[in-house]
Write a protein that binds this DNA or RNA. Sequence first.
DNA 1: CTGAAAGCGCTTACAG
DNA 2: CTGAAAGCGCTTACAG
Lengths: 343, 343
Amino acid sequence: MEAVSRSATSLGEVARAAGVSRATASKVLGGHPQVSESARQAVERAAAELGYLPNRAARSLVAGRSESVGVLIPEPSSQLFGDPMLARLLGAIGEELSANGLQMVLFAPQSATDIERLDQYLAGGHVDAVLLLALHESESLLARLQARGIPMVFGGSPRTALLASYVDVDNHAGGRSATQHLVAQGRRRIAHIAGPRDGPAAGQRLQGYREALWNAGLRSDLVEQGASDRDSGELAMARLLATQEDIDGVFAASDTMAAGAMWALQVLGRRVPDDVAVIGFDDSPIAMATQPPLSSVRQPVELMGREMAKLALSMSAVRGQAPRQIVLDPELALRESTVGSAN
Amino acid sequence: MEAVSRSATSLGEVARAAGVSRATASKVLGGHPQVSESARQAVERAAAELGYLPNRAARSLVAGRSESVGVLIPEPSSQLFGDPMLARLLGAIGEELSANGLQMVLFAPQSATDIERLDQYLAGGHVDAVLLLALHESESLLARLQARGIPMVFGGSPRTALLASYVDVDNHAGGRSATQHLVAQGRRRIAHIAGPRDGPAAGQRLQGYREALWNAGLRSDLVEQGASDRDSGELAMARLLATQEDIDGVFAASDTMAAGAMWALQVLGRRVPDDVAVIGFDDSPIAMATQPPLSSVRQPVELMGREMAKLALSMSAVRGQAPRQIVLDPELALRESTVGSAN
DNA sequence: CTGAAAGCGCTTACAG
DNA sequence: CTGAAAGCGCTTACAG
C-alpha cells in the first residue's frame, strides 16, 4: 500500500494539452472574459480530461489571501450554541464556504497558551476572516483582530462593547411566540423561567414573554431566575409552584431548564400538558428525550451558519464595510408537552 | 476602521535585519544545525523583533505539502460521537495539530454533491491526512483516499472491510467494568439494553456485560435489544420488567437509552437506585440531566482526539506504514443512579 | 485575444 | 558555515 499517484496536474500541463499559454489557461480557469471561445473550450476540455485541480498554496501565495476562514468554537460548556447544535452549525458554515472555494479552519483554544498561539496565527494573515462562536473569548484577541482589520462575524450578539457584525436569532420574537402559543392553548397563568444574565439573550426572551402576556391581557409576574442547567429549572419550577398553585403554563428559556421544570411538575403531581403546558427554547436533542416530548423554540441553526459565512465572505472581499447585523426569526417546534397527544 | 497594518513581514526583511542571506535565515528558522551560533542569534532576535511569521502558503508550495489535516465530521445523527462530545474531540484534535504547526480543516458533507466536491478536494492534495469521525461515509470516498495513499485515521472501529488505522475506546472493557460495578454494589439480577447492531461497539459492550456476570457466577440472560434512542430504552426496560420482576440492575449501552430505561422504571414504581441501579455509556451531558444523575462509562474523548492527530502526523510524515490501531480504556463516572446519595 | 516575463515568500541543492 | 540561484504553481500587468 505504498503512496500512489500524487497526481498534481499543473496548469502548465493543462495549457500544453490545450495548446495555449499558462497565462491564457489561467484566465479561462479564472473566468476572465477576455479569452476567445476556442481557447476557452480547449482549456476547459483539457482541464476536465486531466482532472486538473489548482494548487491552493500557489494561488493564495500570489493572491495574498489565504482562501480560508477561521472559526472559533466555544469551550465545551458554552451556552449559546449548545453542543448539540454545533455540528449542524459547522456543517452549514463549511458548506457555504466551500461552495465559494474557501476552506474552514477550526480553532478551539482551550488555554491561555492556545489563545496566544491563535493570536499569532491570525495576526499572520493566515485567514481572511474569523467567525466567532465563542462569546467568552479574550477581549484582547478581539481588539487585536479589529485593529488589524480582519473581518469578524459573531454568532449571537456579542457581549463586548465593540461595534461588530453578527448573526443572531430574534430572541424577543422567540419568547413572544412561545408565550403566545401557550395563550392560544388556553393557558392563563403562565410562568417564565429566565436564563442566565450573562448575555442579552435571556433578557430579550423575557421581554418577549412579557409582551405576549400584555397583549393577551394577562399578568406576567411569574418569573423565576434560572441558571441554564437542569437543576436550576427544577428548583425554579418548585419555587414557582410554592408561590402560585394554579400555574397552567411554563415557558423556560432553555430546553435544559424546561426538562428540569417538567420533572419538578411531575414530582409534584402535575400532569404535562394536561395540568401544565411546558415549552422550552433551542429545540435541542433534549426536547426529543423528555417525557412527554418538549415543545420548543427552534433556532434556525443552518441558516445562521450560512449567513455568517456569507457575511464573512462579503467583508473579506470588500474591506472597511460598516458592521452588519442579521437577526433571524425562530420558529416553534410543537410537541406533546404543550399540545397533548389527543390534539 | 479601515484595513490596517497587514504586516506580512517577510523572510527577506528578517534576513536583512540580521545581516544574513534569506537562505541562512531560513535555515535558522527551520532549525537546521549547520548554522553558526552568531547567525542563529542574530536571526532569532530579528525575527522576534519584527514579529515575523512565515507565510504558510509559500511554505507549503515549496514543501509540496498542505500543512493541514482534514477532519470529516459526522452527520448530525451520528451515534458514535454523539454531538455533545464532538466539540471536545475537535478541540483536542485541533490542539494537537496546531502544536505541530498543522491546521485542522473541517469537512461536514451533507449531500452527495458535497461528497463529490470533497473527493475532488482531497484528491487535489489539499490535506496531508484525513481524520474520519463519520463512519457512514461513502465507501467509494474511502477507497479513493486509500488508493491515493492519503493517510487516514478513523475515530472508532471502521465498519468497512478495509484494513485501516483507528483509535477507539475499549468497548468490551467498558461493558465489563460497568457490569462489574453493578455487581460490586450487590446487584444480582442485572439486565442489559443493547445498542444497535450497525457497528461492532454494541456487540463488544454486550460481551463485556456477559463476561462480568460469568466471572461473578451470575446469569446474563436478561438482554433486550434497543435502537439507541430514548424510547427504545424505555420500551426495552418495560419488556424486561414484564419478563423478570426482580431485576435490580441495568446496564444500557448508551446514556440516551439509560434515560429511557430510568423513566420506565420510575413509571412502573421502581426507585432508582434503591430498587434498581442504572448505568449508561458515553457519559454524555444527558447523564447529568437525568433524575437522579446517571452513572456512565466515560469515553476518553480528548485522549482519542490527541491520539488520532498523532497517528495522522506520523502517517503523513512516513508514508506506507502498516495501519495501526489504538484502543483506549474507558473509565467509570459514578453518580447517584448506582451508588445512591447516602453512599 | 494572446503569451513572455516577473513575482508572490519560501526552501533546497549547489558551490564556495 | 554561507549565499546566489533555481524553482514550487499560479496570476497579473504589460506588450504585442
